[in-house]
Design a protein around this nucleic acid. Structure first.
Lengths: 187, 187
DNA sequence: CTCCAAAAGCAATGAACGTTGCTTTAGAAG
DNA sequence: CTTCTAAAGCAACGTTCATTGCTTTTGGAG
């Protein structure tokens, strides 16, 4: 895997179409389109609706694919300041700013609305768990007391996403409070 | 307000229609209907679609109304066991069981999917905040150390809703862990 | 260079949705 | 009991979506 895009070769027609579709979905969500449908996405992407119907089972599948792509694209740089306290705070603030953007919060809401029943994994949660694990491992390697990954997910990640998804505002001070709180559970 | 239903008199036609519509929405969500539309709800409720279009601005408004009604209907009995630890645990378990039901989690997801932009309040959060406030006030009155309402919201309510809304399973032990965690922040 | 399979485009169709003017009915007021 | 207003029903319309058979194009293999 030497190229950033998954699937077929980057120059192929399929890849071009997929990129155009992803971009179109991104634009529509950024603009606040209330209803994402194949015909609308297709027109924006300059491709035929039939192509979308054939390639993706439904809109939810497309949305999930776009979300995962966006997540993995810019979820690689983790803070490494020195203390777990600062690293966690920086990390939480990055998440907060990320999902506070209208475009991203709409992704999330659209994804949630499309979800159904129980899934034993969720791309968002999985990524955050993996990141939290790296942060905590580094801190534990330095001999610091660390909370569990589950605690970080429950007490830092969850509140941030919860508030955003339900349309409540979150400021930086609040995010900082969350990381301070969770560190009090580290023993 | 002596009757349980809001609005017009309980015997009127409007009330009958509203109840039928609410019940229809409940049934559809319970059955896992992927798409809630006015025509579908109307047929289930035995009323004319036009009535729905005239009474509610859109499906989102109807969903929110139903959710609020369901919330206020059975959100009145709070535990009063004696210690904050037990009360919080009982309360969290009630919430967990409530929103773990497929019907209710679908309500929530549908509500989230319909939401847009920032709202400075959310019926779900408001109710939970009010309940948490009562619990904490009672404990404070008994002289117990208590966390803040915000902390309870962030560290107990948020994780529960987050996991359910994103389709992850939550068991009773997990809920209990959350309340134990938040009590360590009470000083 | 030629060939070929996979993918995208095109066109047509049926269904469901959202909306609007008009009529009818329920139920409260006098 | 009669009257009157607000709400529900009815019917029709245009729009958009989802789906399917067929044709055309792309871009890699031989």
């Amino acid at each position: 895997m030497t190229d950033q895009t998954t699937g077929s070769r980057p120059g192929g027609r399929s890849s071009r179409v997929r990129e155009a579709v992803h971009a179109a979905v991104g634009e529509l969500l950024a603009e606040g389109a209330e209803r994402i449908t194949f015909p609308v996405v297709a027109e924006r992407a300059g491709v035929n609706p039939t192509t979308l119907y054939r390639r993706w089972s439904d809109v939810d599948a497309l949305l999930e694919e776009v979300t995962v792509a966006a997540l993995t694209r810019d979820g690689e740089n983790l803070p490494d300041g020195g203390s777990l306290s600062e690293d966690l705070a920086t990390w939480a603030e990055t998440i907060r700013r990320d999902i506070s953007r209208p475009a991203r919060s709409r992704y999330l809401r659209a994804m949630v609305g499309a979800r159904d029943g129980l899934a034993d994994s969720c791309p968002v949660t999985d990524l955050r768990a993996e990141q939290a694990g790296r942060l905590l491992a580094a801190a534990a390697g330095r001999g610091e007391p660390v909370p569990t990954v589950e605690q970080v997910l429950d007490h830092v990640v969850s509140p941030l996403y919860y508030r955003i998804v339900f349309g409540l505002d979150v400021d930086a001070a609040h995010a900082r409070r969350l990381t301070d709180d969770v560190l009090r559970m580290a023993t």
